[in-house]
Design a protein around this nucleic acid. Structure first.
Length: 272
DNA sequence: TAGGCCATCTGGTCCT
DNA sequence: AGGACCAGATGGCCTA
């Protein structure tokens, strides 16, 4: 009944709730055809033949007229069953909302969005989001530090004077380049790893701590290898495209007041 | 065919 | 009491 992420990237993570609910109702009422045998849609003791046909209003009314002990028990079972359906429906809705939120998270992730790109799995989305947040906050701190270096009255006020040291503390020389950065895209053998990498400060220890190795993002997140756009695709080509790279190589204008003005919408607009 | 990922059901627990 | 949340179980679909 569900479809998987790899089928179509735009696959809705939530199937039609009405259909599922209706099918659940059918199944619960005794519509046992085309239903998986093991998946008990209602407690096994409630799936007796007595409940078949109670979906019909007439038969339900008829059952209400029968006030024997057995039928009262039946009534309570039907109530129990309807309650079960309600609970199941709520749970479905809850999971659907969760999936919607997950889709929203995917949309703002620095990851390719397109028909040829497989949707990130849930665990990959969460791990990527975590590391992306860490990376952004790290870059923000670095940015603040550089700005204070420039305008703080130090001898290194000139733009080029601080580049080597600051850049070294950033990601150019680090093992984990910023996503989309030239240093990052120069590793085609690790197409999807970079977006998942933690900030430059965090090293392999942090990487393993996040369990990223378990995600194995290279194992086919791309349905078809897109050599042109790379793993980040059109949605996140380079920091300079929308998110200024904090290094001086990428020439962040000194008049940029802060990261609050950084055009983050780039991510959302491209992700569409 | 095995493994990964997912949706759904279900019972339990906690909270309001 | 009712709802939200959670985790385990189960089966379907897809890919390597």
């Amino acid at each position: 009944m569900d479809s998987d992420t790899s089928r179509v990237s735009s696959r809705p993570s939530s199937p039609e709730g009405d259909d599922i609910f209706l099918s659940a109702v059918k199944k619960s009422v005794g519509f046992s055809g085309a239903v998986s045998s093991t998946q008990s849609d209602s407690p096994p003791d409630l799936r007796g033949a007595d409940l078949r046909g109670l979906s019909c209003a007439d038969e339900e009314a008829l059952a209400l007229k029968m006030l024997s002990k057995k039928d009262r028990k039946l009534l309570s079972e039907t109530e129990l069953q309807s309650m079960r359906l309600k609970i199941n429906s709520r749970e479905r809705k809850r999971m659907h909302d969760l999936n919607i939120a997950m889709d929203g998270l995917r949309e703002v992730m620095p990851y390719a969005h397109g028909p040829s790109v497989r949707k990130l799995s849930k665990i990959a989305t969460l791990l990527l989001a975590r590391n992306y947040i860490l990376m952004l906050s790290n870059s923000l701190e670095e940015m603040k530090r550089l700005v204070s270096e420039i305008y703080g009255g130090g001898s290194g006020a000139h733009h080029t004077s601080f580049h080597p040291s600051s850049c070294a503390t950033l990601t150019h020389a680090a093992a984990a380049p910023l996503p989309g950065h030239p240093a990052a895209v120069s590793h085609p053998s690790h197409p999807v790893h970079h977006p998942l990498l933690p900030p430059a400060v965090s090293s392999a220890a942090s990487l393993s701590a996040t369990g990223l190795s378990a995600v194995r993002p290279h194992h086919g997140l791309l349905k078809a290898p897109s050599a042109g756009t790379g793993p980040l695709g059109a949605g996140f080509q380079h920091w300079g495209a929308g998110i200024p790279c904090p290094c001086s190589m990428c020439q962040v204008p000194p008049h940029v007041s802060g990261m609050s003005s950084v055009s983050m919408p780039r991510l959302t607009s491209d992700s569409k």
